[in-house]
Design a binder for these strands. Structure first.
Lengths: 186, 186
DNA sequence: ATGGATTGTTAGACTGAGTCCAGAAATAGA
DNA sequence: TCTATTTCTGGACTCAGTCTAACAATCCAT
């Protein structure tokens, strides 16, 4: 299902990782807004068109780890795991090294609109996952007001916990502790 | 404080309203993604640069009414009104004609990403307002996890109620009814 | 080997959003 | 009339994102 080399065709160069590394360097040197896709691909030694073979937008680079976690959550839920268990499972996989680039860039650029918007798109995805999972568990309509309200509350708690974990205690406490605190409130 | 004509300077042409009207027409004719800012300003009989005198981005046009409501909420909260009362006050001012363009355009737009992102930016603003209001009322730290979780939940309930009001019952029930239902759940 | 078929990579042109700036136009007040 | 102030305009510019046709590297079948 993944990138198993089972078929013909030109093999991928190491493009994806190279691009990620080049971007991370440049963002630290010049900030997110100050670096262009051209610069990233030049440093990566790759053509500009290749960038869009691997990422659909520049801001995707900021959320690589978050997107990975969201995919994992989707997998767990798709495999039939109950909601809170799936959340806990994914949270356990998220180590302290997984602080997304977006956060380190947040200071350097104030609250840039594009950063906020690209991050919120991820929040919306998580919320959608939770909504369908909750509807499935409770047997209710996915579009019912009560389901929406509760899904928003749970998603909000997860995001708040994740944010607190990042700003406050990546080293001190695990993400799971923050999560259980937050989820206890809803 | 507002736009009281008290000082000198060239008076504004009716540009803002003209642009809004032209945009609304074109969005209905061609969809949001299918119309350019050039087309909007041409139909409005105004230069392209003028557009950015009145709006900071194309997607602002989709959220004019929502932004107005958010401003009102901010005013009420700034005047010292308690949170739930301020929300109710603003909700009472929102009539059925206030269904934002964004919603009518949701179908017509091929990729809804931009629409979602621009809408979520508004959600984030509301959440920020609620967070500071809640911190002020409870005397807690605005950055505390509990405050964040509860603010997210309340904001999520408001958004869910607003969405249900739009899709389900603009004509049948008032926004206030949906709001009280949703807020009762958190 | 030879020749597809398939997939990754590239160059280049193109669209459109958003920024910037210098200057013209329209007003109020001195 | 002159000046300060504000809006409006045209044009040039940067950059993200799309698209396409060609090129390169691989596998497989003949």
């Amino acid at each position: 299902m993944k990138s198993e080399r089972m078929t013909a065709g030109r093999p991928r160069a190491s493009s994806r990782g190279t691009i990620e590394d080049a971007a991370a360097e440049l963002f630290l040197e010049q900030s997110y807004g100050g670096t262009t896709i051209d610069e990233i691909t030049q440093r990566a030694g790759v053509s500009r068109a290749t960038f869009f073979n691997y990422f659909s937008s520049k801001s995707d680079l900021l959320w690589i780890d978050a997107d990975h976690a969201i995919e994992r959550l989707e997998e767990c839920l798709g495999a039939g795991a109950p909601l809170l268990e799936a959340v806990a499972t994914v949270a356990a996989e998220v180590g302290p090294e997984r602080v997304p680039l977006a956060v380190t860039q947040a200071d350097a650029m104030g609250t840039r609109e594009e950063l906020v918007a690209s991050g919120l798109v991820r929040v919306a995805r998580v919320t959608a996952l939770i909504r369908t999972a909750m509807a499935a568990e409770s047997g209710g309509d996915r579009r019912a007001l009560s389901v929406n309200v509760r899904a928003n509350a749970v998603a909000g708690a997860i995001v708040a916990a994740w944010g607190a974990w990042i700003v406050g205690g990546v080293g001190r406490r695990g993400l799971r502790d923050y999560l259980s605190d937050a989820l206890a409130l809803v």
